[in-house]
Nucleic acid binder design. Sequence first.
DNA 1: ATAAGGATGCAACGGAAGTGCATTTATTGT
DNA 2: ACAATAAATGCACTTCCGTTGCATCCTTAT
Lengths: 138, 138
Amino acid sequence: MKEIEQRLTENGVRPTAMRMLIYKYLAQKDAAIALTDIENAFAKADRTTLFRTLKTFEQKGVVHQIDDGTGVQKYALCEPGCNCELEQDLHLHFHCTNCDETVCLTEHKIPHINLPEGYITEDANLVLKGICEKCSGQ
Amino acid sequence: MKEIEQRLTENGVRPTAMRMLIYKYLAQKDAAIALTDIENAFAKADRTTLFRTLKTFEQKGVVHQIDDGTGVQKYALCEPGCNCELEQDLHLHFHCTNCDETVCLTEHKIPHINLPEGYITEDANLVLKGICEKCSGQ
DNA sequence: ATAAGGATGCAACGGAAGTGCATTTATTGT
DNA sequence: ACAATAAATGCACTTCCGTTGCATCCTTAT
Ligand SMILES: [Mn+2]
Ligand SMILES: [Mn+2]
Ligand SMILES: [Zn+2]
Ligand SMILES: [Zn+2]
């Protein structure tokens, strides 16, 4: 718990009780988390607070947002040393169509694509979909 | 207009007046189209009809859906010979953060990614974001 | 002409993101 | 310790988009 407090402080996020709980919750999950998930896990807290906590985390580089194509925004903790706010940690994400979970594949970066003249690429999002390792029974 | 009728019929879509107009609208646009766009273009038609038309088109392989990360579903006509319903035409998409338009880059396929053991990839979505050729003034 | 099936229109629902404002809690200066 | 200030939280409400149920209209086949 002390480490969480420190981590938040380092990133310029004031470590309130709520925020540390949310951080802890994110840390113990290996899949990306939607606002609704947190809402269900913390029934007592207000949705707005959770929403704003995620936005604060995102802004301060504690989490990064993931668009996996399901239509709901998900979030995952940034790796230590991840510079996703600078759009330099373009790892890809995998969405399992069986268990509906999305995970970061931080080791797999998005390959560089050569576009025609005139296109200036500033960001990229690559989502692979299929069956995850848990569900494939492998 | 005759060609549109034929195209729809070929794909097993009954060519009603409304549907041909929507097809024509999609054909004359070079960017991906959201339901709201069509709604604005055809003020007289009902949202539901337009919605179901797009779903029918998608199901019959006339259009493919595009998730560009903006949170709104977009659609674009399938290239002749595109087998996107079989998930074999995995071209990438470019979303311009300046003009907010999204285009198909049908010539650029999503590169194959080697995943760890256990992951079975069945589909992929790659969206590049930045400045499009129109907006870069190039 | 009639029956059947498909297309369209109207109304309503639901999920999720987001905002304004009041209230509570923490921080700072005196 | 107290007042002033700022930040965090909670409540209510809104908007946007996708989606569904059901009634009606139109087209097609018998
Ligand atoms: Mn990630
Ligand atoms: Mn496309
Ligand atoms: Zn899975
Ligand atoms: Zn542009």
